[in-house]
Design a protein around this nucleic acid. Sequence first.
DNA 1: ATCAAGTTGAGAACCATGTTCTCGCCATGA
DNA 2: TCATGGCGAGAACATGGTTCTCAACTTGAT
Lengths: 237, 237
Amino acid sequence: MRSARRSVPDTPAAGTVGHPSCWEARSANRVVELGRDQILERSRRIVDAAYELLESAGLEGLTIRAVLNRTGLARRAFYERFAGKDDLLLAVFEQTLSMASRHFAEQVEHLDDPMERLHRIVTSIVLGNGTLAAGAGGRRGAAMSREHLRLAEARPDDLQHAIGPLLELLVQQLSAGMQAGVVRQAEPQRLAALVYNLVSTTVHTELLAQESGQSDQAHRAQLAADIWEFCRRAIAA
Amino acid sequence: MRSARRSVPDTPAAGTVGHPSCWEARSANRVVELGRDQILERSRRIVDAAYELLESAGLEGLTIRAVLNRTGLARRAFYERFAGKDDLLLAVFEQTLSMASRHFAEQVEHLDDPMERLHRIVTSIVLGNGTLAAGAGGRRGAAMSREHLRLAEARPDDLQHAIGPLLELLVQQLSAGMQAGVVRQAEPQRLAALVYNLVSTTVHTELLAQESGQSDQAHRAQLAADIWEFCRRAIAA
DNA sequence: ATCAAGTTGAGAACCATGTTCTCGCCATGA
DNA sequence: TCATGGCGAGAACATGGTTCTCAACTTGAT
């Protein structure tokens, strides 16, 4: 479909007359762009609704029907934009992890020590800052942890892409740490994956295992400390 | 309906004659025991079928209908023995983890150094020995990793119980290591949980992420080495 | 203004799966 | 012989993902 538009500049007319094909192209583009905006606007509404539902109703509550109820759109509108539920989940993954890693990157840029940066990132993930993992009572993080492995099986490449930003952030700090001599020499990718897996899985296993909701804050802080201690030793030079 | 039969022992006759109620009880027990054996035999067949299906067809292939097809039993027979699919999954968890931890315990008992024992256990899990995690092409391990978090949410206590044996094994080695001074002082439970989560999640994420099936053996060995190095540093004194 | 054609909303329809229910067979004991 | 409980077979129901149909609406052309 895009090839059609692309072919326009290739016609000799474009060279000879110049203008017509130009505004034609611009006009067509404009229409397409408008269409695209509408399409994207709705796509965004769908993803946002899914994002909210994941938080309020958990993974079991995230049904296509519920999402569409919430947006007021028709099922058809969904299947025009997403190949299926997995695509939607991947979109939520992408959005969430991208937001979270941006958030963490900001939160951390004023720190100089790579180790300190990693500490901050890990702690933030556990404590649920940055809209990622375990926001207070946050089912979204738990849901994402759970879906992680399924998507790793069903759509490895897309998942890898979605997780990219956060892993990238970790890799940066680890690489910097290695250059500074505070992190042991190893494949940064591998270390990042290990740290990420450890943190995300453990947080949810532990937090859900208790569920008592007691002195949650203290518990979680302790958990964050334990996890970080574990990671620190595992990656330190 | 059952209340009618139940009312019988409540009659004064039972107390006055004495004996009858005794052999009645024994007889009833015998029948019950015989019944129990049959019941258990079938339960075992169901669990075994589920265990095999998990390996051959993955989590999506594990449907009640498929399990019952394989055993030749009726759906009713299933719902008489299990409260639902989750119960079946928990049973598979229990059986698998119990078998695996027994296997690991044997494989390790001839080693003296707790650290060496842990090394062996972690490596075995990654390499898929012991019927646990990632047996060659093993979907069962992947499936179990995936279900882990869902069950942690839905049935935390039962899951904890099912995982018990393996965690217990890890805790033993960690405690021994602490006493021997080769493992740092910390809550053994916590360390065990961290190690277990790290290993089980990472194995499946990594192995499924590639899926290329290339020099799998080498890859997996490298993965095992990396994971162990991570753990070793994390828990060493 | 009217019509043709594409677009889109509403929801019926289809399928798979978990779960429950009904029916009838059959063995066993009175 | 007959009543009864256990059990297999599978119908039935609910839910959720996915596809399909139909009609209203939009838009551009005549």
